[in-house]
Design a protein around this nucleic acid. Sequence first.
DNA 1: CACCTAAAATGGACAGCGTCAACATCGGCC
DNA 2: GGCCGATGTTGACGCTGTCCATTTTAGGTG
Lengths: 218, 218
Amino acid sequence: MDGKQDGKQDGKQDGKQGYHHGNLPQALVEAGLALARAGGPDAIGLREVSRQAGVSHNAAYRHYADHHDLVAAVAARCMDELGALMRERTEAVTGPPGARRAWARLDALGRAYVDFARTEPGWFRTAFSGAGEGTAPRQGEVPQLPADHPFRQLNAALDDLVDTGALPRARRDGAEYAAWSSVHGFAGLLVDGPLQHMPAPEVRRALDAVLAVVTRGL
Amino acid sequence: MDGKQDGKQDGKQDGKQGYHHGNLPQALVEAGLALARAGGPDAIGLREVSRQAGVSHNAAYRHYADHHDLVAAVAARCMDELGALMRERTEAVTGPPGARRAWARLDALGRAYVDFARTEPGWFRTAFSGAGEGTAPRQGEVPQLPADHPFRQLNAALDDLVDTGALPRARRDGAEYAAWSSVHGFAGLLVDGPLQHMPAPEVRRALDAVLAVVTRGL
DNA sequence: CACCTAAAATGGACAGCGTCAACATCGGCC
DNA sequence: GGCCGATGTTGACGCTGTCCATTTTAGGTG
């Protein structure tokens, strides 16, 4: 009766299963990532995630305050994924340094953003589900974004645009919001807005139009 | 915004209401609207809505297929609210017909959109929660949007821009996506994105920048 | 007017969820 | 070697959406 049915359902690839999992937070977020990928933020269940990690419900409470906290952790990882794709795509843009490359990189940034939203809508919706941001930062304090955060990459690209003389310095102020908003909005309309069922070729042409307007307007 | 019905949730105390409510679908959506206003789409509960309508749980199933269907109905109403505000704001822009007024109206359209998102974030998030769009429309068939739908108002404003000679006809294609994306994206970033805690004056300046870029780029 | 049918609303039941509380078990440190 | 805090477990509670059988009502037909 005291018997602990040990090693019954291994389920996961983790070998060292004892009473203590060893790396639960990671495993939980990983499972949450899989859930979110298929069904968005609402698919991340505290019990389901624990189940997939081969652990009893409630175990997650030792590492996350509540359900919202878990989702926030998953959301942060989704944002990382987006940032990683953007980094990858911009680094693939080669050529001599200068205005031409700077513009091409900004373009690649925007296309990577939209591509991510289309190919991983669950992650995209999770990343921007509002679970990411906790409390307001103290006044005059920059919230310390990760190095590859989409917003920081965008700012760097815009700075490069200024440095290469492609963008007048007077136009730099607020440009990050203009560029980000356009691309983020288009992605949002595609993912769970009224543009959900837009056929692919039309999506491509519409994205071209969006990027062209921003490029001209900056 | 309020319905004409006297909104007491007393339930049975309503004089002419007996076993049959008489107008349940309306009442349910109205209650859902109130819930969504405070807590977004996730706050719309089938049981809670029925409770507020003074009716037993399960009654809603006679009028809506399931929970998602109810939320979709509420989302449609939220979209109507947004459209109504946009209509109101653009009609407030007076002056002689012409390019100047056309530009001013497009500007008002964008500002109304963002204002709605800021003052009614629950409704805004509900409107774009993805519950609105059911299945894909048949090929080559325009989905029949309501007359005051934000997208139709935007298209009309852009057409007016062309008619008054303010916008070259060659630039018209895709302009609706560019304009909509910018404003929708900014609103989204404000409502549940990383711009949630941005102080108001900075929001105003950022919005100015966004609109300026779009205006120049069109 | 009485009757009958279909729509409308009801109450109960079920599984699943997030969360709290009490208990069991382990690893590391003195 | 023994303890203690961190970690994981079991059980319970209230809540939710959904199915089911049942009851009540409205409205047309004889």
